[in-house]
Simulated assay, not measured.
Amino acid sequence: MSRPLNNEPSFIEAASQRRPFSVEGHTFSAAPAEPGLHITATPIGNLGDITLRALQTLAGVDVILCEDTRVTRKLTQRYGITTPLQPYHEHNAAKVRPGILSRLEEGAAIALVSDAGTPLISDPGYKLVREAREQGLRIHAVPGASAVLAGLSIAGLPSDSFLFAGFLPAKSGERTRRLADLAEVPATVILFEAPQRLLATLSAIAEVMGEREITVTRELTKLHEECLSGTAADLAAQFGDRASIKGEITLLISPPDRDQHEDLSEEALDAELACALKTMSPSRAAAHVAETLRLPRKRVYARAMALRDGDGGPHQE
């Protein structure tokens, strides 16, 4: 259904407002984007993975909000897009967000992009989207590339149910506790990780989760794309042999074994743990006993900590 005639621009006006973009040397034009906030996915590596709708949107909006203008400019220059770029990242978001919301209220069309992939997935934007919704402003989804789904599609792990858990905590104790929580999730767990922390994370997964099947994807869609599978210990050995580890990493962990014997008595569990705690740390003892008895690792880890601290069992050094 067309807009009322008194609000509809003439053909000449509409044509003059169209903005160019180019693909492989061919020039196209985009109509002005609809008012509102356009959450626009961009490529995670290969710039050819941009969608036609994303190009039309980026060319047609009034401004593009981006984490790093230098990164986004590589994309806009590749496709001949001249829309102004404005920084929007964790360091300036609180300061500039009110102005962005005011422009949206005035009828502006604004795109939000991240450096790579789908905005808000471990990237800035959540508070902006939430406040825009609370104010009744229009929000448009312009879907596209995502390292989460790209990694899941090639990992060979169960894809009917998965949990994206973002980045693990940097501190070892917090990381171990987070992994203990994730260990019992009945789905494939997907994480992002920094290359300099990959070995520590794989070691922690081996300690807390045991012999899970793990897939590490690195540099997805880029020239040196890599997808390796094995246990956490196996992968740690492979990456440990390298002089350095670089690139964007997505890490996928298989679900726990569903055939678990939950009816084991506390006494029997305590006996196994007491033996293991004589030579192992609580987290390693929990992983070992849980794997041996096919029990939920979260339950076993909690009991191991209780025994270590003297709550219900002998203190173990």
Rank of each mutant, 00 (worst) to 15 (best):
I110K: 00
A41V: 02
S159E: 09
S29K: 09
I64F: 01
K74I: 11
G80V: 01
L307M: 10
E248S: 14
Q260E: 01
Q17K: 03
E24W: 06
T57L: 00
E262Q: 07
A206R: 08
L128R: 08
I100D: 06
A141Q: 12
A33E: 10
S102T: 12
L293A: 10
S22H: 09
E193K: 08
H26Y: 02
A287S: 15
E174R: 15
F192H: 08
S114D: 03
L191N: 01
L104V: 10
E134H: 06
A145I: 07
T69H: 04
L5G: 03
L104N: 02
S265K: 07
D257L: 12
E34K: 13
T250F: 02
E248K: 13
D68P: 15
D241S: 15
A155Y: 01
H89Y: 05
A287Y: 00
P255W: 12
A155N: 02
Q56D: 04
N92F: 06
I121E: 11
R212P: 08
P9S: 01
R284T: 10
R197T: 11
L277T: 03
T27K: 08
D160R: 12
K298I: 03
R78L: 01
D311R: 12
H89F: 01
A276V: 09
P43R: 01
H315A: 14
G36D: 03
G99D: 05
R70L: 12
M209K: 08
E226T: 08
K127G: 06
H224D: 11
R297D: 06
P9G: 02
